[in-house]
C-alpha cells in the first residue's frame, strides 16, 4: 500500500493482494478491480474502516513452496486478517458492516463454467457470513473493471467504472 497526505487527508492506496485500515479520517482507495474483489469493513461507532483487495478465492490450492501463504491474496484468509487488524484499531466485530465490489468477468470469450470473479464473490460472501459480518452494499459481477473508495469519516463507499461515472453502494 501507498500512503500520502493530500489537503490534510490521508489517502491510502491498496494494491492487489493488499489491505489497509484507517481510523477517524482519510480515504482508502483500490484501483482496477476486475475479477478481483474489494472488501470494505466499517465500524461506524469507532469509525474504523478497512479495505482488502483479493485476487483469488481460496488459499489452500496455492500454498507457495515453503508452505507460507500471503494471506492478502485470498478471500478466505484476507478477510479474517483484515478483521484482526481492525480490532487492533478498536473496531468491534459485532458492529462491522461490509460492502463488496468486483468479481467481474472481463474477458468476453472465456468459456468456463464458473469464472474466477464469480468464485471470488462466492467465497467472499461465505467468509463474511462465517464471521457474522453482514453485507450491506455491493456492486459485483458484470464485465467491467471498478475502482473502490472507502471514506473513513462516514463509511461511505463509492465505485467508479470506465465511462460510467461513480455510484455509491
Amino acid at each position: 500500500m501507498i500512503s500520502m497526505i493530500v489537503d490534510n487527508t490521508e489517502i491510502v492506496k491498496v494494491k492487489i493482494a493488499d489491505m489497509a485500515v484507517l481510523k477517524d479520517n482519510g480515504l482508502i482507495i483500490t484501483v482496477g478491480l476486475g475479477s478481483c474483489v474489494g472488501i470494505c469493513l466499517y465500524d461506524e461507532i469507532s469509525r474504523v474502516g478497512g479495505l482488502a483487495h483479493i485476487l483469488l478465492a481460496e488459499s489452500q490450492q496455492f500454498k507457495s513452496r515453503d508452505g507460507a501463504v500471503n494471506k492478502a491474496k485470498f478471500a478466505d484468509t484476507a478477510i479474517p486478517l483484515l478483521l484482526e487488524k481492525m480490532e487492533k484499531f478498536g473496531g468491534k466485530r459485532s458492529r462491522l458492516r461490509s460492502k463488496i465490489a468486483g468479481g467481474s468477468q472481463l474477458f468476453v470469450f472465456k468459456k468456463t463454467n464458473i469464472s474466477v470473479g464469480e468464485k471470488n464473490v462466492e467465497t467472499v460472501r461465505r467468509t463474511l457470513k462465517k464471521l457474522n459480518i453482514p453485507v450491506v452494499g455491493e456492486d459485483v459481477g458484470g464485465s467491467h473493471g471498478r475502482t473502490m473508495r472507502l471514506y473513513i469519516d462516514s463509511g461511505r463507499v463509492t465505485i467508479s467504472t470506465v465511462g460510467k461515472g461513480e455510484i455509491e453502494i
Binding site: 492487489i16 484501483v31 482496477g32 478491480l33 476486475g34 475479477s35 478481483c36 485476487l55 483469488l56 467481474s104 472481463l106 474477458f107 468476453v108 474466477v116 470473479g117 471470488n120 464485465s143 467491467h144 473493471g145 471498478r146 475502482t147 470506465v162
Partner: peptide, 14 residues
Amino acid sequence: AVDMAGAIISTVLA
C-alpha cells in the same frame, strides 16, 4: 477486453 488497465492485468494474473 476493453477496460481499465489495472483491472485487465490483475484479472490476467488471477
